[in-house]
Each structure stands twice: as structure tokens, then as C-alpha cells.
């Protein structure tokens, strides 16, 4: 059970209050019609899936209902930071860029 700091409630809460959405910072293409099928597929389905640091989006579903991002290690499960929507991570690696 992860212990997650909600950047909006500004405190740690139990994992059961949250739901995970998936990889963070996936931006919807502004002009989907101009993309090739392959580019569109890449947006829809292809993910980094790193073994190591990962930026991922969560939602505080039972709490403030806000979405936010976190940088988490996918092997040790350590959470290095959580940050608000619209902000950039302060901890990155080559894999996560």
C-alpha cells in the first residue's frame, strides 16, 4: 500500500483514496486529423513502461478529486515527488524524458 502525498490536500494519504491513470505528460495532439495512423496509435497505445523512474498520473478520487502527477520508481516503489497538474517534474532521467 503506497503512501501518497496529495499536492492539493497538502498531506499524505493512503493509496486506497487514489486511483492511477497511467503515464503522465501525454499530450493530446492538437490536430489529430493531421497525424498518420501510426502517430495516432503511438498517442493511443504506446507507453514508456520504464523499469526505474516513471512519471505517472494519479487522481485523488476519494479526496479532492484532483488529478496530479508523481515520479515513482517502478522497482522500489519509492515516490520521489508528486506535483500538480501543469507542473513539470523536478526529478528526471533519460528514460523518463
Amino acid at each position: 500500500m503506497l503512501h501518497i502525498h496529495c499536492p492539493y490536500c497538502e498531506e499524505y494519504r493512503e493509496e486506497e483514496e487514489f486511483s492511477v491513470v497511467g503515464e503522465a505528460h501525454i499530450i493530446r495532439p492538437l490536430a489529430p486529423e493531421e497525424l498518420t495512423d501510426q502517430e495516432w496509435a503511438s498517442y493511443l497505445f504506446f507507453r514508456k513502461n520504464p523499469r526505474g523512474l516513471h512519471h505517472e498520473m494519479w487522481a485523488h478520487s476519494h479526496g479532492c478529486r484532483k488529478f496530479f502527477n508523481m515520479t515513482r520508481h517502478t522497482v522500489t516503489y519509492q515516490i520521489l515527488e508528486t506535483y500538480k497538474m501543469g507542473q513539470q517534474p523536478s526529478i528526471t532521467t533519460e528514460d523518463t524524458k
Binding site: 490536500c9 494519504r13 483514496e17 476519494h62 479526496g63 479532492c64 478529486r65
Partner: peptide, 12 residues
Amino acid sequence: DSFPINKVIGTA
């Protein structure tokens, strides 16, 4: 200490 009077939380 973590949940003083008047505090309100949404939780499970």
C-alpha cells in the same frame, strides 16, 4: 495531531 478540530477530509 494530524486531525485537529475543524479539519475536514474526504476519504474512503
